[in-house]
Nucleic acid binder design. Sequence first.
RNA 1: GCCGGAGUGGCGGAAUUGGUAUACGCGCGCGACUCAAAAUCGCGUCUCGCAAGGGAUGAGAGUUCAAGUCUCUCCUCCGGCACCA
Length: 818
Amino acid sequence: MKNYDHKKIEQKWQKEWDKKKLYRVEDSIKGKENFYTLVEFTYPSGNLHVGHWYAFAVPDIYARYKRMQGYNVLYPMGFDAFGLPAENAAIKLGADPKEWTYKQMDKMRTQLGSMGAMFDWEREIVSCDPEYYKWTQWMFNKFLEKDLVYRDVTSVNWCPNDKTVLANEQVVDGACERCGAQVEQRNQEQWMLRITKYADRLIDDLDKLAWPEEIKSAQRNWIGRSEGSEIEFKVKGIDEKIKVFTTRADTLFGVTYVVLAPEHESVESLELQVENKKEVEQYITNTKKKSELDRQQSKEKTGVELKGVKAINPSNGEEIPVWVADYVLAGYGTGAVMAVPAHDERDFEFAKKFDLKIKYVNRPNVFSTSRINSPGNSGIYESPSKKLDEIIEFCTEPLCDDDAVLVNSDLYNNLSCVEARQKITKAVGGRVVKTYRLRDWGISRQRYWGTPIPIVYDPEGKAHPVPDEYLPWLLPTDVDHTPDGTSPLARSKELLKRTEKIFGKGWKPEVETMDTFVDSSWYFYRYLDAKNSEEFASKKSREAWMPINLYMGGAEHTTMHLLYSRFWVKAMHHLGLVNEDEAYTVRRNRGLILGPDGNKMSKSKNNVVDPDEIVERLGADTVRMYLAFMGPYGVTVNYPWDPNGVVGVRRFLERVWKLKEKIGKGNATTLLHKVTKKITEDMAEYKFNTAIAQMMILINEWDKVDEILEDEYKILLQILSPFAPHMTEELWINLGEKESIHLSEWPKWDERKVIDEFLKIVVQVNGKVRAEIMVTPNTEEEEVKTLALKDKAVIPWIEGKEVKRVIYVKGRLVSIVL
RNA sequence: GCCGGAGUGGCGGAAUUGGUAUACGCGCGCGACUCAAAAUCGCGUCUCGCAAGGGAUGAGAGUUCAAGUCUCUCCUCCGGCACCA
């Protein structure tokens, strides 16, 4: 073939590899170590976009590199096939969600095939396949047995017009995205998973994972463990107590009011005492119109005082007002806070707005490891009451660290802030508690297209699991998808009949389906044994592949999917179902590919890049390689697609193609060894961009000579093969090789040829580069320094001045300090 | 608002992890080939300056012989915030 005809080559090899089952993966190969590379399986949207290429084709480069290094590499693909879009298609177009989904998958399978990735399609999984969700249901039952599942009430967005629950993203400015009706907050009972039971382990076990610190940190913050105190405030005149949660019990003396979340139960039980009932009711009604996010985002604090109600500060017996405000969330802590406006910014804003008392706590003599901030001069200053002087004397510094040590207090010498908080908590009869921002996971959805929750209700309404022998508990098909406020499954006669037939008259099926995050919490196990009808995955296959060596995915999954699946594995581990309690040894987040204009690709912005068109025009090898060339992989940086840039990569491949004509006698090049080494190292860190740059440097050198050696050219092809698997295979076989280039071994380099004969040492005078000197790698430090000081270009800069110091950085520079 | 991340030429980025800032690619300019154009190839391309030399990594400070890299303050952009996946 004279010219590089990507179309012919790519089709030919994709067919050939398929025929030869080149990418079939066995659970074990003698003498080879297994390596499990995972990428997040995809929702079958029906059209592969550039983002999919970035997510799947670039990790394929890495998987191929590992395979050439002698690993038995698993790089599987599947479909996260349950979800809203299929249901919306059913509502809008009258489509059958199942048919619709499978059609999309067929289309995507073809498109995925055009990548030339090493997916083993025999291991493909589809989460909406009954053979898959059977195991999702089976695990649900196991969790239920172990009390990891329970029923509870949570608040959801409700559109009264469409009669459906809305995702936060479907609520725009408090209105339903579809019909514009005012969205309400509504309480709904649902099935919950006790993820909070694992909160401590989910935080603590992060320490043993080789994950980037920013991901760990995001997870820690999401879980939001804080150690604090629960302290009771009595309500004056009646037998009612308000329990508040605070992390700063040491500021108790500075409390000037108490705030309840609008949903707090005391709001109701204090009804008789409240003098401004109407006003309070109005406020609560208004709150229901706001989503939680709105409540946290709003800069303007709102609230209403419960007039006629006074709480009593347990530290000094002071009577303080009680407020209701929506900046306090019902789901966190106890849903009530003690406000210390002098030492908390939000409380301060609130106090200022409603003209509440601000009271500074007496400053202690503390030794803090951080800088000490003065509370400032504004506001009212009051001395602490005599009664609790000794308790509040310590640790009232608002910004002191948890590990600050109090040194100057006679009574509490060497007491840390944390200890001080414990002491004061006890003194007022409170208790020290741990609390989490993380909430239990509500998995119920009033949707059709999801895994049916395998529960049935007896005539008394008591819930029972569907026994394992009846799994998969099939999704019925006789369903009307029009939203009418009930779950679509409630309208299935087949489901009801089935339930009655198995369990008896009067029994009713659960009509909810599961959150799709459940499906994706364990999918990586199913790849290992995708066709097993006896187990979710055999012990043998799990032991062969788990834990996953590398999990590449989107940064948007950092807190939710990644935490849900970590919880899932931990729960499975405790049930004795799997060996490991963490599934992902290494996790890397990737960024996004933006449109050429630097914006997120979207139809409305008219900046969508169609990969199919570019593959047709320039080839899959070019697209794969360009995506790898844009920037380092595995960091959350977004790169805009540059239509010119992709042509540059195509040019590179054409130059490599043409180089075959230069094969001849030539001279061996030491550059090849350097390049091979650098590329091998870069690939290990997912720096595919600089690896490619090295190949470009190499062929720039080869362009300058008349002939190159065949063996050296072949090494280039091997290094290039993970990036451009089709073209390199064609060239490799044409050079007479019998076996696929992808079965060949990653090239080695000669370390002796990597070392330079001479080193260029930079000479700086007072930090400015003034000269360069050449030395051999084993020139002694003293000699290099002497050479630097004597250098012609250096002398004018140091003449007549005193040389104070001379610093030598081996192999790099000499720094002369005057 | 809270949490996480990123700011380096006209553009994507590189920088041996504290040691010559701008590798490689794109774009642009000039030239070769051509009747011409495309493609291809060669040379040039941070900035001020004739030069010697000076300045520049979002802004400002600090540590250091030496800072894109470390510390602090601020600005801008991106991702997530629990029923999109």
